[in-house]
Design a protein around this nucleic acid. Sequence first.
DNA 1: ACTCTTATTGCAGATCATGCAAAGTTCTCT
DNA 2: AGAGAACTTTGCATGATCTGCAATAAGAGT
Lengths: 220, 220
Amino acid sequence: MDALIAGMVERVDGLRERKKQATRVALAAAAVRLCLRDGVERVTVDDIAADADVSPRTFFNYFACKEEAIVDESRMRGQRLIKQLGSRPHDEAIADSLRSVMLLLVHDATPETKRWIAEIRMLHQTPSLLPYQLGSYVAMERSLAEVIADRTGTDAERDMYPRLVAGLTIAATRVALSRWLDCEGRAGAACDFVGEALDQVAPAFALPADRPAPVLAGTD
Amino acid sequence: MDALIAGMVERVDGLRERKKQATRVALAAAAVRLCLRDGVERVTVDDIAADADVSPRTFFNYFACKEEAIVDESRMRGQRLIKQLGSRPHDEAIADSLRSVMLLLVHDATPETKRWIAEIRMLHQTPSLLPYQLGSYVAMERSLAEVIADRTGTDAERDMYPRLVAGLTIAATRVALSRWLDCEGRAGAACDFVGEALDQVAPAFALPADRPAPVLAGTD
DNA sequence: ACTCTTATTGCAGATCATGCAAAGTTCTCT
DNA sequence: AGAGAACTTTGCATGATCTGCAATAAGAGT
């Protein structure tokens, strides 16, 4: 749990680390801003670097490609979400905690959510970005699994349960958002879609110990 | 359903279409073969094109990048799997059908499975390929959703259920295989992992109509 | 102030990826 | 069979992507 917190919290020691963070954030923000303004196709790495006031070469010290930078804000938003999961009441059922936190995503009160919607709308209609978006989801899955392990008394290394619940949660949310974007404006709010998907998947969150043994017995 | 079958079946009309298929298959096979032989980093598009006996320019008529070609066999394998799902008894519970078909993946009787294992082992330890692998999973999800819709009397366009079940199935299988690869040789066979994951997720496959209303009252 | 460590930058070079037009095929129709 | 349409392959040119390497600059610790 210590490593998790250390990796998540944005508290940084010295000036050097703070500048690195700032550069990374500036690059990611520039990437999204330019893509929203000019369209993903028309934005080059040079443009992004110029907008963030660093050399093009520095860009590649932070991201392997343009797409990674574009998706980085989404990744950070996921990390913040997981942090909020950690601050849910510790005795709450894990399904309820996950539901509350995932619904924060689409709770369109904050201006931040507005930007995020514009962002995922762009990601949703740009096939070349899809793989990298999915990659950031998997990264989120890993962090999520650690929190779930902590909350359910399972082991993120040895047990499949936390990884599985994390994967199912992300998958359900992803499908719900995708369907919402497909029929946007015509069929209700995003939180209805996400809520419905998480209701459907919730029965799979029962701890294996509480689940009746399957017909074909397990591995241990 | 017609469009699905048409897109899936590899039956081709004329010589032209057959040659195109052959070129695509040759490129994908060359990509995997060279990557397994020399390592992903050391293989260039020119190498792949040369191995498949076409010009480098032709490569880009089929794939947008090297990674897409490497993952294409995996994508085709998925399509074949979905075809097999269509031939399961039509009155079988969808959870059982999915279980049977997904377990075919890791049923290591065929020599084809051997190659596939080598392939996913490579994908698993090459972070730069992960995004494209995930992309092929999402493509598989779409086809899978159509079959599930057909089998359960739901609508792949309007209902969330088939897309969700497809997404959960893929997610469970992906997590199981990932965990198996993480502790390979130490903790049993791959089919045990996949089976356990699918057992855990199965309760989420109940049709919404059969599911009791959630505690937190719904959205409608 | 001095040194150690680390980040930034420019440059060279390889690879990636796309548009375009010419050349080579398969297909269709008579 | 043969003419022309439709499509695929290919080479070329060009811009973008990405990686090492070495020099410079800047923060951290003493």
